[in-house]
Amino acid sequence: MTTLVHYLVQYGVALVFLNVFLEQIGAPVPALPTLIVAGALARDGKLSSTHVLVGAVAACLIADWLWFVLGRRYGYRVLRTICRISLSPDSCVRDTEANFERWGLKSLLFAKFIPGFSTVAPPLAGATRHRTLQFLLYDGLGAILWAGAGVAAGRAFHRAIDRLLLALERLGWWAVVFVILILALIVLFKWWQRIGFYRQLRMARITVDELRAMIDGGQAPVVLDVRTPSVRKRDPRRIPTAIVTESAEIDLHIGDVPPHKEIVLYCT
């Protein structure tokens, strides 16, 4: 057995647990590659698939339960914190909220397959006051499906992964540098995406003071309230003259609006 594989076998389950936990807590370190490698090692009889799955599911449940409790305690403020640390500009709270409202706790079954949604769904379940046992049940099933898919992929492609491990082994300590470099590049890329996303948003956004001045000056734009129904139920107010609509129904409300007319959207 090569040294690299020897270490992977010795600390494999702990590594899977740590990696999955970090990813679920919101750190930008992908866990799927680790699960795939663990699956390949399990296929070769060097690791137990059951142990890997138990480690991954336990890490998911612990991390997700922590977010669930924080969501229950601090509500929607937790979601903003997650968006800050996850470096995923695509995980807009509103989109996640809409998905969650549509599917409820069942969305936890596939949440881990969708970047961004995975970390945001548990605190959302807490903020919307779902029961802990039901949450853990759906979250656990989702974790089994997700980790199972990773391990199954590793088992299916074990020969290719074995060759990759062997190639890394030949690199010696450079293999560690290589893996760290890849991780650093992923984090850097996500950070760069995020900076660009926020720069674009800053340029495009209108401030509340600007909007107020436009309304007072008789140059009111078309204002669309695109908050989700549950948020609107909690706070049944709107900006004066705003059109209350769902994303899918915007067409019904803007049919007569000329294309040059300014449109301002707001959510929570």
Binding site: L201, A204, R205, I206, T207, V208, D209, L211, R212, P221, D225, R227, R232, D235, P236, R237, R238, I239, P240, V244, S247, I250, D251, I254, V257, P259, H260, K261, E262, I263, V264, L265, Y266, C267, T268
Partner: peptide, 30 residues
């Protein structure tokens, strides 16, 4: 989506509804 439909000036409200309320501006019932 709106820009794809030909609308040229589409801007999200910075701070959202919470920002509007925090600024003390008026609201009306939905």
């Amino acid at each position: 989506m709106l820009m794809e439909k030909g609308f040229t000036v589409v801007r999200p409200l910075a701070g959202g509804f919470d920002g509007w309320v925090e600024a003390g501006y008026p609201t009306e019932p939905v």
